[in-house]
Design a protein around this nucleic acid. Sequence first.
DNA 1: ACAAAAGTGTTGCCAGTACACCCATGA
DNA 2: TCATGGGTGTACTGGCAACACTTTTGT
Lengths: 220, 220
Amino acid sequence: MKSADDFKIKMILGLFTVDKGKLKVLLFKKAGEPYKGYWVLPWKPFTYNETFQSNTDILIKEHIGLDEVYTETFKAFDDKETVLTDPVVHVTTIGLTDIASASYQRKEIEGRESDWFPLESLPKLAYNHEEVLESMFTYLKRKLRDSEMISLLFPSDFTLPELQTFCEQIEGKELDRRNFRKKILALSILEDTGDKSESASGRPARLYKFKEGISQINLF
Amino acid sequence: MKSADDFKIKMILGLFTVDKGKLKVLLFKKAGEPYKGYWVLPWKPFTYNETFQSNTDILIKEHIGLDEVYTETFKAFDDKETVLTDPVVHVTTIGLTDIASASYQRKEIEGRESDWFPLESLPKLAYNHEEVLESMFTYLKRKLRDSEMISLLFPSDFTLPELQTFCEQIEGKELDRRNFRKKILALSILEDTGDKSESASGRPARLYKFKEGISQINLF
DNA sequence: ACAAAAGTGTTGCCAGTACACCCATGA
DNA sequence: TCATGGGTGTACTGGCAACACTTTTGT
């Protein structure tokens, strides 16, 4: 018989990227009950011949096909609906990747309906995943302000307007385009790649990348 | 026989307060092996007729005698030394209280050697608790910058030099006393209680408290 | 009256803001 | 040539940094 203090643990992953300046999260559609047709964060059971890190690596490899994604352990959650009857604890992880790496690898993953959703227009989420995502987003907003991890979200070529759109989302307010340019370029953390974006309409934007070896990035 | 994916879960608490402007954490001395004589964060086994929150409440009540302490769930840790052989996962929680409440209640707790340690001079810590504390401190430094939770750490009367000492610890640099006063008072988030501190030597300082109903505090 | 720590005011400067015009591309 | 969005320069101003002296207490 099961002891009263043994638990199953689920690893749950919030994998984030930035696409055209918008922060997006990877979700999968549930095929079966319960919550059929709802969307969920990628997850797997935690098994103890692995560590959090190796479990997360496996999870990312299986769901998105990527190796070497930056991750950090996030909060644990007891699903309030079920913890009293079903001893499952959710250990969550935040992962960051750039859209170029993510898109390239996505082609090889088949058989499950998945998509990147912008945080301001999420579909119906199963279980407590909306709460988990909300909590992750709050954390990210704070941490992205004064850490170098923002550079993980951008590919090796992005435009300043894209970066500005992203900063506006984090700040929660609109920024002046000219002042934004001036401030960011004055930080000397970007490098002009020399290339230009393909413009749908209007003048093409210059493509930048973050310089190597920048340890502190304070965009705000 | 035990299944390969059942885990024991330990709740581990980092309870913080501010004493004379210094951030301190509550630790207990280990009486028995292993790590005899080392210090540990308060902890208890997680049992599933309780939630994270109620387990934490019990833990705080048992170890420090306080009710109604502000807490939030923090990261989960797999102790890298033992996770492969001993399936225990650590779910950690951060709690904040003011030194006045904490000191008042401490008198009723007997039989275990415990103390508040300033973060810059910790004793020898058992297990991975140093890693846990380091991670909590990093998190706190970031979050205290732009949330109202700093007010939870200060009692209903504190001096501006105390607040300044605390801010210097968070910022990691010295601040000018006059400029600090000017900036903080200009924020209109403090209320002069009219009382003065008892000075060991030198002029007594005015005692302030945080105003009620302040939702956003940005000291930096 | 002396030591120790708290409280106060002025000035200069730089970073952030506000704002209008020109440039490169696709249709 | 027009619409669309990107890139640039200037003037202002408010907040931050630098800085020295006075006040209140205990001894």
